[in-house]
Design a protein around this nucleic acid. Structure first.
Lengths: 71, 71
DNA sequence: CTTGTCAGTCAAGTGTGCTTTACATAATTT
DNA sequence: AAATTATGTAAAGCACACTTGACTGACAAG
């Protein structure tokens, strides 16, 4: 799942560590989410949305990857 | 996390099994989410929101339980 | 009374979200 | 050169999201 977390974070001038602290998770979790290693849990997605004042759907993008559908 | 999945589902006249099939998960997963045993993953929450045509925030409620804050 | 459907639950197993600790690299800064 | 800050990554472990299979009780319909 894609997301614009890195953009929102750097707009605020926050480091990954600073954002992690605000969200009460580890810095590695923020890094993993930004680099697409895994998706956040629903409660963490809510916390992110609340922090940035935007709906979840604006921050995370669930568009299905049409893997090899274009053949 | 609270949710109105059961309400939305029964409005449509669907059984848990029917909803599970539409969402491509097991019936037990739907039951566990409705009965509050655990929260769905973010991708599943997106699928639910898409299916019912509502934003995630309208279906799932992240309000913090103020456990013993009322003392 | 039997059959079927629905909702709830349990057990055991797999995969992943998140943790802590640790190391590496690059860009400052002193 | 040394120290600091930010990012990326890795391994080991715990908790939870989700699975299959099975069982129960409530309710309807034959």
């Amino acid at each position: 799942m894609k997301n614009i977390l890195k953009i929102l974070r750097t707009e605020k001038g926050w480091s990954q560590a600073a954002l992690a602290e605000k969200l009460d998770v580890s810095r590695q979790s923020i890094n993993a989410i930004e680099t697409g290693k895994y998706d956040p849990s629903l409660p963490l997605a809510f916390a992110v949305a609340r922090l940035f004042g935007r709906p979840i759907e604006e921050i995370f993008d669930d568009e299905v990857e049409l893997a090899h559908a274009a053949e």
